[in-house]
C-alpha cells in the first residue's frame, strides 16, 4: 500500500485534502457551496480543450478556471450570484461537450477527471499540485480577516474598509486554484465533497474559527487517507469512500452541535 507508485498518490492526495480542508472552511462560512460545486465542473472541460489543442492538461484546467472566475465575477455584478454561477457552469460545460466530441480522448480519462484517479498520479504531477496548493493556502491566510469579516456581514466589511467585492473575487480565484489541482486527483465531483463535508462538520465542533480550520483540515486528511486505504483493500472506487466519509463527518458534526446546545440549555 505504501510502495512504488502509491507514494505519489499519498503525497498528492494529502496536499489536495489539506488545501480543500482549509479553503473549504471559507466555502462553508461564506455560503459559497454552489460556487464550490460549479467551479470544478466548469474547469473539467479544460482538460478536453487541452487534449483538442494538444497543450498541457494543467494549462487547460487553469485556463478554464480563469474563464470560470471571470464569468462568475462579471455576471454577479449585474445579478444574483447563484444565477451567474449557474450560467457560467452551463456555458463552460457546453464548450466542454464540443471539445470532447472533437477529440479522441478515451471515456476512461473523462471518467477519471469526474470521479478521480488517485491511483494514477505520477511523480511529475506532485510539483505543480504542491505549488498551486501552496499559493491558494497562502492567499487564504493572507486574507483571513477580510474573508471572515465579509462572511459575518458584507455591510460591516464595507464600513470597515475591507472592500467585500474585491474579497469575493479573490476568494473565487483561491477556490478555482484549489479546484484545478484537486481535480485530476479526486475528480470534479469529489473536490466538492472534500471542500464542504469536513468544513461543515468542523464548524459544528467548536466556536473558534482557527480551531475549526484545523479540524476541517484534519477531517479532510483522514477522509482521504481512509478512502485510499479502503479503496486499495476492497478495490471499490475511492470516490465512494470520499463521499461517504464526508457525509458521515457532517452528520456527526451536526449531532455534536446539537448535544453542545442541549447541554448549554440545561446548564
Amino acid at each position: 500500500m505504501f510502495s512504488g507508485f502509491m507514494i505519489n498518490t499519498w503525497i498528492a492526495a494529502s496536499i489536495v485534502a489539506a488545501t480543500a480542508g482549509l479553503v473549504g472552511f471559507f466555502v462553508v462560512v461564506r455560503g459559497a457551496s454552489f460556487a464550490a460545486h460549479a467551479l470544478p465542473l466548469s474547469i473539467f472541460p479544460g482538460a478536453a480543450a487541452a487534449a483538442w489543442l494538444g497543450i498541457n492538461e494543467i494549462g487547460g484546467l487553469v485556463a478554464f478556471a480563469a474563464l470560470g472566475v471571470i464569468g462568475i465575477d462579471a455576471l454577479s455584478r449585474r445579478g444574483r450570484p447563484e444565477v451567474a454561477t449557474a450560467l457560467t457552469l452551463v456555458m463552460l460545460l457546453g464548450l466542454g461537450t464540443l471539445f470532447l466530441s472533437r477529440t479522441t480522448t478515451y471515456a476512461q480519462e473523462v471518467y477519471g477527471l469526474l470521479f478521480g484517479q488517485v491511483l494514477g498520479i505520477g511523480a511529475a504531477d506532485i510539483t505543480p499540485i504542491a505549488l498551486v496548493s501552496a499559493a491558494a493556502a497562502g492567499a487564504v491566510l493572507l486574507l483571513f480577516r477580510p474573508l471572515l469579516l465579509s462572511a459575518v456581514s458584507r455591510d460591516l466589511a464595507q464600513a470597515r474598509g475591507a472592500a467585500p467585492a474585491r474579497t469575493d473575487l479573490a476568494f473565487l480565484v483561491i477556490l478555482a486554484m484549489a479546484s484545478a489541482v484537486a481535480l485530476p486527483v479526486v475528480g470534479a465531483l469529489l473536490v466538492f465533497s472534500l471542500m464542504v463535508g469536513p468544513a461543515a462538520a468542523a464548524r459544528n465542533l467548536t466556536d473558534r474559527a482557527g480551531l475549526a480550520i484545523a479540524l476541517s483540515v484534519a477531517i479532510s486528511l483522514l477522509t482521504v487517507w481512509a478512502a485510499i486505504a479502503l479503496s486499495y483493500l476492497t478495490n471499490w472506487p475511492v470516490g465512494f469512500f470520499v463521499g461517504f466519509f464526508g457525509a458521515l463527518a457532517y452528520g456527526l458534526g451536526r449531532g455534536a452541535l446539537h448535544l453542545r446546545r442541549a447541554r448549554r440549555a440545561m446548564a
Binding site: 462553508v28 462560512v29 455560503g31 491566510l141 493572507l142 486574507l143 483571513f144 480577516r145 477580510p146 471572515l148 469579516l149 462572511a151 459575518v152 456581514s153 460591516l156 466589511a157 470597515r160 474598509g161 475591507a162 468542523a202 464548524r203 459544528n204 467548536t206 466556536d207 473558534r208 474559527a209 480551531l211 475549526a212 452541535l257
Partner: peptide
C-alpha cells in the same frame, strides 16, 4: 448572524478592531 458560524462574540468585536487587515 449565521447560527453555524464558528465565531465567538468576542471574535466579532475583534474583527471591528482590525478586520480589514491582511495576515493572521
Amino acid at each position: 448572524l449565521d447560527p453555524f458560524m464558528p465565531l465567538r462574540a468576542r471574535d466579532v468585536v475583534a474583527l471591528g478592531l482590525d478586520g480589514n487587515r491582511f495576515g493572521l
